[in-house]
Structures are given as C-alpha cells and as structure tokens.
Amino acid sequence: MAKRKQGAGDLNRHLPALIGRRIFAAATSLAFVIVTVFAITNILPGDATDALLGQGATPQAIAAMRHDLGLDRSVFLRFWLWLWGVLHGQFGYSLLNGLPVADAIRPRLHNSLLLAGASAAVAVPVSLFLGITSAIWKDTLYDRAVSVLTLGMVSVPEFVIGTMAVYVFAVRLHVLPALADVASVHSIGQFLRAFFMPVASLALVTLAQMVRMTRAAMADTLSAPYIEMALLKGVGPARLILVHAIPNAIGPIVNAVALSLSSLLGGVVVIEVVFTYPGIAGLMVDAVSSRDVPTVQACALVFCLTYLLLTTFADIVTILSLPRGRKA
C-alpha cells in the first residue's frame, strides 16, 4: 500500500518526466532504425556497383563507379554524409535512373498518406465500435460472430482481401475499376470509384487486428472487481460503460489501436501493389526488386518514422489517461 501511495505522488509530480522518458525512448528507437537501415544496406560483401554494372564489368569501371557513388570512403564518413543528407531531406540518388530519391518519393508519399489516412478514418471508428460492443456483449452470438470473422481475417494474407475485392467488384460485377487510376480523378464520383476498393480493402485488413485488440482491452477492464462493484451499487449499463469502464480502458484501447496500425503500414504495401496504386509502398517494392538501395532506404525510413510517430503519440495518450495513483 505504501508503494502505491508513493507511486501516486510520483505519477502526478513526474507526468512530464514520464512523457519525456517516452519521447526519449522513441528517439532511441529512431536512432536504432536509422543505424539499422544504414547498416543493413552497407554490410554487404558486394555493393551497389555489382548490381549496377553486372558481373562482366572491368575493375576500372567498378572503381570509377565506386568513386562516383562515394563508396570508397570510410563507413563512418559515408554514414555521416548520408545522415546529413537525410536530415536535409536529401536521400541520395536512385541507382536505377540517377534522379534524386526525394523527388520520386514526395508525390507518392502524398498518395500513400491519403490512402492510409482514409483507411484509418474508416477502420478506427468501426473497430472501436465492434471491439467495445463485442466486449460488452461477451459470449453472445454477436460476439462469437465478430470473433470468428476477425480471426479469419487476421489469418489470411493481405493480398487475399485485395484480390477478392477485385474479383468480386471488377471481374464479376464490373462496377468498379480493377486499378486505382488516381491521376484522372476530377469529380467526387470518380474519386469514390478510384478509391473505394483500395480504401475498403486496406480498412478491412487493419480492422480485424484492431477489433480483436480493442475487444481484449475492453474485456479486461470489464472483468475488474470495480465493475462488479458498480453493478452491485445499482449502476445502469450505460453509466457502467461510460463512467466506469471507458476511462480505465481508454489507455489500453489507444495502445491496441496504435499497435494495429503496424498492420495498416504492412497492408499499404500489399494493397498498393494489388491496385497498382501510385504510392510510396509500390515504389519501395519496385526498388526492392531492382535492388535500388537508396530508394529502399528512404522509403523504409519514411515508413518507420510514421510508425514511430503513431506509437509514441498513442503511448503519450495512454500516459495521460492513467488514473491518478496508479503505478506507471
């Protein structure tokens, strides 16, 4: 008990410190990501010149190329120069066409954010609703149906949902185009036609995970002794959920949503390829196929940064929603 009391004071006094610690943790993760991304692409025995020039290249050509690309400098210098560029929005030049990677990324990043944002805007409210309600009506037919459906959906790869959508709406029903022709969007109708399938597929992909985790978080709260106590005080169902359960469940739920956003990022990659959507993930997959390392590096960084921002934000919300006096 003494420990808890102390924890209470600590928490109230040190809320900024807690948040600071979380941001620091995010920063170290970011550093880890940056170093990993650089390291993985630089620990190769062979380097980019092999990929660019092929097996038959003369040693002179390789040396010249290495000099052009700066590969003859030390690893630390290269890391520093690369990092310096990254900090200034310069991700180097594509090995494929020699154009700046940043220029290729910028318009596609906009498209990807649009796709991911629209899908999240659909998926988050729907999954909160489904997750919370199925936790409330636990063990009913509704709950079991939601549970089996979402279990099925988390168990199939993302491309299955995308291709199924194409099969049903484009191949069988002919109501929607199979490819997302974003460039020719001029009206709301065209916008909906172009975006409906990618957004719906991506939302479905994200939803399943999110519903399951939200339900688990909410069910956990609902099994707490203070919920039973509230019932025994004669509190009605609406008040029970809104006043007693939600304030305690909000932290875990936000956390669950943030964690499921990783499936959104994974899903973006697959969905963009299925619909040949002109986003950054499609760019990255192409770059991986052609082993265009600077482009892959840049895309990976952008993705990881987005993911880190989202999870950090969620964690801060969780910290803020911690009840007073509960140990962090």
């Binding site: 008990m1 808890r4 707490a224 002794p225 203070y226 106590m229 304030p247 009840p323």
Partner: peptide, 10 residues
C-alpha cells in the same frame, strides 16, 4: 478488497 473494488480512475 476495497483496493480493487474502487475504480482507480474516479
């Protein structure tokens, strides 16, 4: 156990 029967958030 009053420690767990009171809602920690209120």
């Amino acid at each position: 156990n009053a420690g767990s029967a009171f809602n920690p958030a209120l």
